[in-house]
Amino acid sequence: MTTPPTGGASRATPPPTTTEEASTGQLISQLTEQVSRLVRDEARLAQAEMTQKAKRLGTGAGLFGGAGLFGFLGLCVLVATFVLLLDLVLPAWLAALIVAVVLFAAAGVLALVGKKDVQKGTPPVPTEAIASTKADIATVRESARR
């Protein structure tokens, strides 16, 4: 037969063997401790998950940035190709001017479409989530009054 170890937490009171034997104060103390531990554990889990996702997001953003750079360089070569193609039938300066005007027109159209989308997205507040939360709070308050 082994003897129980004498070291350890001497101030901690062992939990009662069953909940029927525990007093209300002990049960509330256990509940508070368990809820507190649960919240801390969930916060640690959320922090670890967000750290991992942030690392992946950073790597993905870097790769997208590299892809964007190479795409931009490819577009520049394509624009130069159009200029050289028009140079076969027009003077070089006129070919470059025509391609520049077309590019500026495309940029203007994209800017106008982007401006409309930005206006639809402002203000950047989750209005639907706020409304849903307010409805939930009102429902809980109404249930508590009954």
Rank of each mutant, 00 (worst) to 15 (best):
A138C: 01
L84C: 07
L45D: 10
A95P: 01
G65W: 01
S143P: 05
L97M: 02
I137E: 01
L27H: 01
L31V: 07
G66Q: 05
K120F: 09
F82I: 00
T17H: 11
R40W: 13
A106T: 04
L75E: 07
T19S: 14
V39Y: 09
T18D: 04
P126T: 00
F104H: 06
I28L: 13
G65V: 02
G74T: 03
R146M: 09
V102Y: 02
A95L: 02
A22K: 02
Q26W: 09
K55I: 14
V79T: 11
C76G: 12
L86K: 02
S36K: 11
A111Q: 05
G68I: 00
L57E: 05
A135R: 05
G121E: 06
L75W: 10
D136M: 15
A48C: 04
G25H: 03
L31N: 06
V89F: 06
A100L: 05
E20S: 11
L112A: 07
T127M: 06
T127W: 06
L112H: 06
G121T: 03
G108L: 04
V140F: 06
S10V: 13
D41K: 12
A96P: 00
P4G: 10
F72L: 09
G114Y: 04
R146V: 10
L110R: 15
D87S: 12
D87C: 00
E20H: 09
R56F: 08
T32K: 15
T3Q: 15
C76L: 15
A131I: 05
I130F: 01
T19R: 13
S132F: 10
R11V: 15
A12I: 12
V79G: 04
L45W: 13
L103T: 03
G62I: 07
R146W: 10
G8A: 02
V77P: 01
K134S: 11
E49R: 12
S29N: 11
A100T: 00
A138I: 04
S132M: 11
P5H: 02
F82P: 01
T18R: 03
P123L: 00
G121W: 02
L73Q: 02
G8W: 00
G74C: 03
M1C: 10
T32N: 15
T133V: 14
P5R: 07
G25A: 05
G62Y: 08
A111Y: 08
